Simulated scan of single mutants.
Amino acid sequence: MSQDQIVVTPVSGKKGRARFVDLGRSFAERLPHSVPQLRSEQMELVDPGKNPFFGHARAQLFIAERGGTPVGRISAHIDELALAMPAEQGFGPGTGNFGYFDAEDEAVAHALLDAAEGWLRDQGMTRSLGPISMSIWEEPGLLVKGQDHSPMIMMGHHPEEYRGWIESHGYAKAKALLTYELDVTSEFPPLIQRIVKSGERNDRVNVRQVDKSRWDEEVAIVLAILNDAWSNNWGFVPFTPEEVAYAGKKLKPIIHEQINMIAEVDGKPVAFMLTFPDINAVLTRVKGKLFPFGWFHLLRWLRRPDQANMRVPLMGVMKELHNSRLASQLAFMMISQIRRNAVKDFNAERGEIGWILDDNQGMVAIADAIESKVNREYWIFEKKLG
């Protein structure tokens, strides 16, 4: 076998998944501004026995080698719930995905994409969409803008050259996802402050903090609003009950009541906004390792994040209120309370909102109104499989 020959091999089982995860970590270590993630969490995401995503999905992991040296990786996966969605919403019949894409060079990238596409074709797929690693709710998209600064919690980070390698293999942009950043130490513009104060005087409206003492009930409320609010959005795939329970367990340690809000109208929950302190700051200090002292630093930080920047990864308003003035007012009220509490209780200086679909006019208008600016852009690519 030639030393220059690229061999792409499917991997499975615990050892195969460990090689796959560790190879991705080695790529991340070389990338400026990358943040080392917890290996145990990365292992769990690709484990069919632990991640409930696999309750409605199937996947194949691949590793590329050149001369016996690992030089890249990719996943190919099919989400049955995504197949059942209308095609105009991004997924739909015949659409499979690739994800966890890392490559040493363009030749390796093309070999990996060939392998993923071949597996998808064998499974009856006619279209490849990615990178999505692996659920749309995990790390969707390839970073095409914003490599000059570190990502916040649960955001991917990729080299600039990956975009060209994917495009040169016949892929085109299907959708852009944006994140916006803002200085949370500054008050919002006067118009937004007036909108917030008007809402606070409305007896029908109540914006309250999430109550962790009844956590399961609150999670159910948030996920019910999310599944309704996002049901017509591009890329939407509903959460299953198993995923709701899994997400609730995973998110509870990073949820602080004063920066997570539920809005009620006439006593009915109709909107929510989740905010996570940027755990990547402490993961950088412990280099993504829990032992020997990572656990101590991580747990101490989680109890009381200090000088923590904040990310709003998800918000939603029930469809019955879409395109109404009340919907945007509720959003401004929630984010205004979160901003104040983040500064007061956690000494936050910077916030990030996203991702936001680039054609989501309502959310883009809200981001513009509070004078936030796009700081990162992710693309999801598509290709017809002949």
Rank of each mutant, 00 (worst) to 15 (best):
P93S: 04
D203R: 13
E217P: 01
E320L: 04
L298R: 09
F62E: 00
L283S: 00
F239Y: 15
F27Q: 07
G90P: 00
M315C: 11
R303P: 06
H149S: 13
N323V: 12
D22Q: 09
F188Q: 10
A109T: 06
K50L: 10
E382I: 12
V210K: 01
D4H: 11
L81I: 14
G90Q: 05
E382Y: 12
E242S: 14
V8C: 10
Y246S: 00
Q89P: 03
G164Y: 07
E160D: 07
Q209K: 03
L326Y: 13
S372E: 07
I353Q: 12
P70Q: 12
Y171H: 00
V312L: 03
L142W: 09
F27H: 05
S2D: 14
K212Y: 00
L177A: 02
A87P: 04
Q37S: 14
Y162R: 00
R285N: 03
F332T: 01
F62H: 01
R376Q: 11
G16C: 01
L31M: 14
E167P: 01
F91I: 09
V244Y: 02
V222D: 06
L321S: 07
S26F: 01
D22T: 08
D228N: 07
S324Y: 03
I192G: 05
K249N: 13
V222K: 12
I153K: 08
F62C: 00
L223M: 15
G118W: 12
V205L: 01
P36F: 10
Q89Y: 02
V282R: 03
H56S: 05
E88W: 08
Q361T: 15
P159Y: 10
G24Y: 02
G267N: 10
M134F: 14
H169E: 00
R121V: 15
L177G: 06
P313L: 06
L226D: 15
L223V: 15
E181C: 15
R303W: 13
P313T: 03
F276C: 06
F188L: 10
E217V: 09
A76C: 02
K197A: 11
M261D: 08
F236D: 14
P36K: 08
M333N: 03
I153V: 11
M318Q: 13
T69Q: 12
A308K: 03
Q337Y: 00
F98Q: 04
E181I: 11
M125E: 15
G351C: 06
V270A: 07
K252G: 03
N51V: 06
Q5Y: 12
W379E: 13
M334G: 01
N375R: 14
I221L: 11
D4K: 02
G99L: 09
M334W: 02
T126D: 09
V11F: 11
E200W: 08
R30M: 14
S135T: 08
E243K: 03
G351K: 11
